[in-house]
């Protein structure tokens, strides 16, 4: 579904260049759920944004569904690829109702029967029709994220990019959203590329994952490897142990960053 070859992203002017992504290559298979894990500054979100076409100064090549994509994306690209953002309080326009948020993509792409599609999308994320004319400020964090997911689904994409979709939510709400995302993938057979700093979330959601550090790919592992604690690289091991909770011995074993 996604083939990334030697992707590099550099921010900043000549004087203060920051290499956010440094020659990363990876493949995501159709129907797969693939996780990108790493700490802040590891470049995981930057990769996602380059795939989404939200940043336009990257080098290397990105192929989606077999076709290379360029700096500027066509309108059709967005029928294939959609994204759910991290902060549900920031990703919904504060002055648009749920109805407008969901029907705008339909208008842009000239799809008919908007009424039924909006209802179906709300249904899919388990929000009733009573949510249709609310403003974001009338929704809780979990409800907002459901609306954001409905917006991503409404154009029936085949690849959905998930940028820390639950990190701003309480754990109990996170569980509901993760289950919902899981259901959607099973029902629709979409491909997920999920970015998270939380190994627990990635372990639960993804078939395979890539550990990233300072813009580079450390290793690619399967869900089974992660569950069994069989990661090869010391950094991945350290990240995994750190995610399991506080352990004095683990802290002492850290190699300095």
């Amino acid at each position: 579904m996604i083939e990334i070859q030697d992707l590099s992203v550099i921010f900043g002017e000549a004087g203060q260049r920051v290499v956010a992504v440094d020659g990363v290559s990876l493949r995501v298979l159709p129907g797969e759920s693939f996780g990108l894990v790493g700490e802040s500054g590891s470049g995981k979100s930057t990769i996602l944004r380059a795939v989404a076409g939200l940043i336009d100064h990257w080098g290397g090549s990105i192929r989606i569904d077999g076709h290379p994509v360029g700096r500027k994306r066509s309108r059709d690209f967005y029928r294939l690829v959609q994204m759910v953002f991290q902060d549900p309080f920031g990703s919904l326009h504060p002055k648009h109702t749920v109805d407008r948020i969901l029907s705008e993509p339909l208008i842009i792409h000239g799809l008919d029967d908007a009424e039924a599609r909006v209802r179906a999308a709300l249904d899919q994320v388990q929000l009733g029709p009573s949510f249709r004319f609310r403003y974001p400020h009338q929704l809780s964090g979990g409800q907002r994220q459901r609306v954001a997911i409905a917006r991503a689904l409404i154009l029936s994409p085949r690849l959905i990019l998930l940028d820390e979709p639950t990190s701003a939510l309480d754990v109990s709400i996170q569980a509901e959203i993760l289950n919902l995302l899981d259901d959607i993938r099973r029902d629709l057979g979409v491909t997920y590329l999920l970015v998270s700093h939380d190994l627990g979330v990635v372990a639960h959601m993804c078939d395979r994952l890539a550990v990233m550090r300072q813009g580079a790919l450390v290793e690619v592992a399967s869900q089974g490897d992660l569950a069994a604690g069989a990661l090869r690289e010391p950094y991945s091991q350290q990240l995994m142990l750190a995610s399991k909770g506080y352990d004095r011995a683990v802290v002492n074993s850290f190699t300095d960053t």
Partner: peptide, 17 residues
């Protein structure tokens, strides 16, 4: 640079919209 504008770009909206 807000997420909701990025989200709107992801719907394929043109600059005028």
């Amino acid at each position: 640079n807000s997420d909701y504008l990025a989200a709107a770009r992801m719907t394929g909206a043109g600059p005028l919209r």
